[in-house]
Design a binder for these strands. Structure first.
Lengths: 163, 163
DNA sequence: TCACCATTGTTGCACACGCAATCACCGCCG
DNA sequence: CGGCGGTGATTGCGTGTGCAACAATGGTGA
């Protein structure tokens, strides 16, 4: 057991549970929530997140690159995802008047309807599978901790086009 | 804004930050750690995790299905991953004597060497990007919270072959 | 002993995604 | 005005993954 004590000693039991637990919990939660959305509404989780972000904006439209950043996808990944959403009629691309390069993804009425139908499922899933396991204090702690992780200047990447 | 108050009201600010923060932090951490391992050792994170789990066993070998469960992969996914690891010489398949259907994935000397080399990078990454942002108390809290999430009987799946 | 179902690992197939290249366009500086 | 680097979105290509189907084997009950 001394073979690994070269430079960095292994994690202690709590550290290991905190880290591996994060991986496992994330995988579990995403799988559960995605399965629920998919089975009840035929909507993958990533698609739902795009619709959700669009719905939170004025006019229901966002620049493609902003959507990509919001849902943690590459631009190419978002292009294909919006392709699918457009094919299903939930969003439509509209030309950006101020910048001929850019496109908006805009929520359609069908997309808004779909989102509203799916949101109950998703919110209940988040509450049941995730929020229910934390006290309000713990949630506040978590919320701040995540921002500490995201904040540091490690490969954050510049804001984006709309910034 | 009253359009979503149909059945389930939206998350409050803290809930939202706790939930979306989890998604964002996970994505960020996995990306960072994977990039570090890949660039410094040419080893993807999932491959590393397989080697790590194997190293923690007696004899450095595990049943394929147990490895799959440990690293949160499907059996087919693990088959391909072990294909790659075997091609790179880090593991080898050995026939299970008790069960002609089964195979062990066994860590080779090269795999153990690779793991030891990569472990410093990975451990330092976990400490720097994740553990550093939490106090010991917070880590304990996290460790227990993850187990609350994983524990409930929601699609847990039966133990497995080695159980 | 044999029939039957469960389980293990692999494979065919499809899909979602990222990277790099590409094209069109913006803004700036000379 | 013209050139030039930077940016937004798309596309080609490769990769990693899951699902379903499959063959081989184990285990159990008649």
């Amino acid at each position: 057991m001394a073979s690994l004590s070269n430079e960095t000693q292994p994690l202690d039991q709590t550290e290991l549970r905190a880290w591996r637990g994060l991986l496992r919990a994330h995988a579990l939660l995403v799988k559960r929530l995605d399965a629920e959305l998919e089975s009840e509404h035929g909507l993958p989780l990533t698609s739902y997140e795009v619709l959700l972000h669009l719905a939170h904006t004025d006019g229901g439209k966002m620049r493609m690159c902003d959507v990509a950043e919001s849902v943690l996808l590459s631009r190419s990944g978002l292009t294909r995802l919006v392709d699918r959403l457009e094919r299903d009629g939930y969003v439509e691309r509209v030309q950006c008047p101020d910048d001929a390069r850019g496109s908006f993804a805009r929520l359609t009425d069908a997309g808004r309807t779909k989102l509203e139908a799916a949101s109950s499922t998703h919110l209940e899933g988040i509450r049941a599978h995730f929020l229910a396991h934390f006290s309000p204090d713990e949630l506040s702690l978590l919320a701040e901790a995540w921002e500490r992780i995201a904040a540091p200047g490690s490969t954050p990447g510049p804001p984006s086009c709309s910034g």
